[in-house]
Design a protein around this nucleic acid. Structure first.
Lengths: 244, 244
DNA sequence: GCAATAGTGTCTTTCAGACACTATATC
DNA sequence: GATATAGTGTCTGAAAGACACTATTGC
């Protein structure tokens, strides 16, 4: 806009505008994304991301939160805009541009929220150990079987994982997957699953414990311990105001 | 899309979809963005980014390239999608969603391309030395006078500079501002202007000369020198296939 | 010679990872 | 005691930056 000498917006053809939601969690030792088995054509029977059309004069962030609430009831989660997809062939029904949004949620909250779910499913994402590059070769599987999502949703999930990888070391995204209290090893597992490779344990622990995160908080011990494994209990940590 | 049980896309209201272009260059020792003085209401007389509406079934990347070619003739530059803006008040004429795109160009090419320009102007962006945070407090000035761009274009330029800062150390964005051959100090100035702070000279030179960039190339000396200053000439470097 | 920028050598601090070790739970 | 994970100490090499120094041009 802003350049063509007209004020008659109605004279310009306009696409349908939708939002697709990449809701990512970690459970059963894997990175997973919420998908649903599509009932209608096109792509009936394929796994697709939850989504919906933008309402008139609705902010895209609000659309994403609305879709999130409608599908999971988790209306309070932060959402982040990822990218806009506009391939003319992406939807056989017509000209549909979709803005993808990313949201993270701890698995316990998500499992409670979707409950029985109406065709909702946490599909596994295997992040390849992409040696040195920044791209993430993804294996998307349900019940161990590779699946090919409908529309351009494989590409959207790939962009989401790349965003997670890029933000992992300077932002607080890892905590989006964890409950209030967690062990340092659980935090390490989050990093390893997102990066698709192992990280150095002593260094990881020192770095995390010394660090002040962007919101000014840091990790602090709770004095409580995670029991239940057949091994020494791990201390639980939480984000708290930095002592400095 | 992809979730509501209908195939009648026409029943959904749809916004006008536009692309706004953030074309950034470095000249006269400052980071600058191409803006134009808007002739029509709304925001007549204010500086705005070049932009245009998306054509039916056109990929957004193609729209960005088309607008770039129409305004500057530089149709071959790479463009990168930045973010989609959807505030309901952003355009008083109606519901217009805009996808912002970023493009970088060496100042010599840009100055030759816009020539006399029809109200085109390279507006200065002063990146504040934002201490530690990731945000960039921007001063946007024309002839040294602060200006307030029309629409939400100040916000769009801010997002563009943040993207540049985030990509600076792992991508090749800095070379987008430079001609084929350049001195290491010119490369350093590009980094300093984008970051809004000085960088360590010996370390910067060593790092750049040792480095292999994402396309596999590295910096190599040309044997030619930049003459003309009242000081020792600086050697010209260029990107070339890495020796390894 | 002087001013100004080009370009380098060295030292210190911090970061990242390898490796090895001790600790403590369940079985 | 066996095993599995929790958690720590130390060493090495790389990365980042501070600082000081030499080099070469125009004037």
């Amino acid at each position: 806009m802003s350049s063509e000498p007209t004020s008659d917006l109605a004279s310009y053809p306009s696409p349908n505008l939708a939002v697709d939601l990449v809701l990512i969690t970690i459970c059963d030792g894997a990175l997973r994304v919420l998908m649903m088995e599509r009932q209608e054509e096109p792509f009936a029977g394929r796994w697709v991301l939850p989504g919906g059309f933008v309402h008139p004069r609705e902010m895209l962030d609000d659309t994403a939160r609305r879709v999130l609430g409608a599908k999971t009831g988790l209306a309070d989660l932060p959402v982040e805009q990822l990218y806009s997809f506009s391939s003319p062939e992406r939807d056989p029904r017509g000209w549909v541009v979709s803005v993808a949004y990313l949201a993270l949620v701890p698995s316990d909250r998500l499992l409670a929220a979707i409950g029985e779910g109406r065709g909702l499913r946490l599909v596994e994402i295997a992040v390849g150990s992409g040696s040195a590059g920044r791209v993430a070769p993804l294996g998307i599987t349900a019940d161990g079987e590779p699946v090919e999502p409908g529309f351009d949703h494989r590409e959207i999930v790939t962009v989401a994982v790349e965003r997670l990888q890029g933000k992992l070391d300077w932002s607080m995204v890892a905590f989006g997957f964890l409950p209030e209290e967690f062990t340092l090893f659980e935090l390490q597992r989050v990093h390893e699953l997102i990066l698709g490779r192992g990280v150095n344990k002593p260094h990881f622990r020192k770095k995390m414990l010394d660090r002040t995160f962007p919101d000014g908080r840091g990790l602090g011990p709770t004095g409580r311990f995670s029991r239940g494994g057949r091994h020494r209990p791990a201390e639980l940590y939480r984000l708290e105001a930095a002592v400095s």
